[in-house]
Design a protein around this nucleic acid. Structure first.
Lengths: 167, 167
DNA sequence: ATAAACTTTCAATAATTATTGAAAGTTTAG
DNA sequence: CTAAACTTTCAATAATTATTGAAAGTTTAT
């Protein structure tokens, strides 16, 4: 496999995987492109490489910046803006985990708390609703805590954690 | 909040959360409905409760069965089929984690392996592609391993794991 | 201040994904 | 075997989500 083919394969795979880590295709592809680039890229270059419109590029770069995954670079002597992504995969994973916890998991925990604390009217169906949503809330809470714990240990947290759990 | 409102809130929240665990809205809603039901439900009942068509119900129940989350129940004296979902949240999480690993993570690892093992032609960009996809592959591998380890410990695995990592 | 270089916004449109419903298929009872 | 009861399939359609491109906005150089 040649460089160009490998590059395209990587970008498209990573793009379609976007859903797995909760972002859309274009966003994931832009991030992938920056991730294997040896230098910061301009909007023009991103558009060109991925064959997407200026508007799309602009919006998705903004979202990536909102997530904290991509940052603007100033290149001296250049008028236009350049972009880079976090290059350390561990740091990347840490950012993604934190953001997903904040954006998706925390709000769900809140709803589960509300639902599971309705008044027990003594009926079987109410008891079941309370019991099951409570269990789900506890599980979600635990998963969220675990994720945040994992992710807050700097340096090789994953490897360390895997090792710990193997014992 | 009354039972009916709480129920609807739970089903719709869980439905919109579907993406987080990788399934679609209707699938997630059906699962949610079964999850808080005190008895197996027929297709008719599911359609009725969620206001969705027969075809949609049939297809999504099938998918849930493919995932191993929902099972058919035979109720004596009844011609039609009834459905139940796994009621234990830990077991549920275990099934979901395993399926996502198999369906989504493993295939990505395979692509990352292919891409990261292209011939190093000595250019900077090829080196960068190899280095970064390799790092991503290792991370994904670690996450997958961790997830499977977590999930294969029966009984309170999550609580135990959280505890372990707190030390 | 003006104009060029560049970025953002957003209504229109395209692409994708989910849903319907009716026809075809299957199973069971008699 | 036949008919009723039930389920599945799938082409058509609806709903949702992503993308475009051009106008409006911003910044910088002179």
């Amino acid at each position: 496999m040649e460089y160009q083919e490998a590059k395209e394969k990587f970008i498209s795979t990573w793009g379609s995987l976007g859903t797995l880590w909760g972002i859309n295709k274009a966003m994931a592809q832009i991030q992938a492109l920056l991730f294997i680039s040896t230098k910061p890229l301009s909007m023009e270059e991103v558009m060109e490489e991925l064959k997407i419109s200026r508007g799309n590029t602009s919006m998705n770069l903004r979202q990536l910046m909102d997530w904290g995954i991509v940052t603007k670079e100033i290149v001296r002597g250049e008028r236009k803006e350049f972009f880079t992504t976090e290059k350390d995969v561990q740091e990347l994973a840490r950012i993604v985990a934190k953001e997903r916890s904040r954006r998706e998991i925390k709000p769900v925990i809140k709803v589960l708390e509300e639902v599971s604390s309705i008044k027990d009217d003594g009926t079987e169906k109410t008891k079941e609703l309370i019991k099951q949503t409570k269990a789900l809330k506890d599980l979600t809470d635990d998963l969220d805590t675990l994720m945040n714990k994992l992710v807050n240990q700097k340096q090789n947290w994953l490897t360390k954690s895997v090792f710990k759990l193997m014992k």
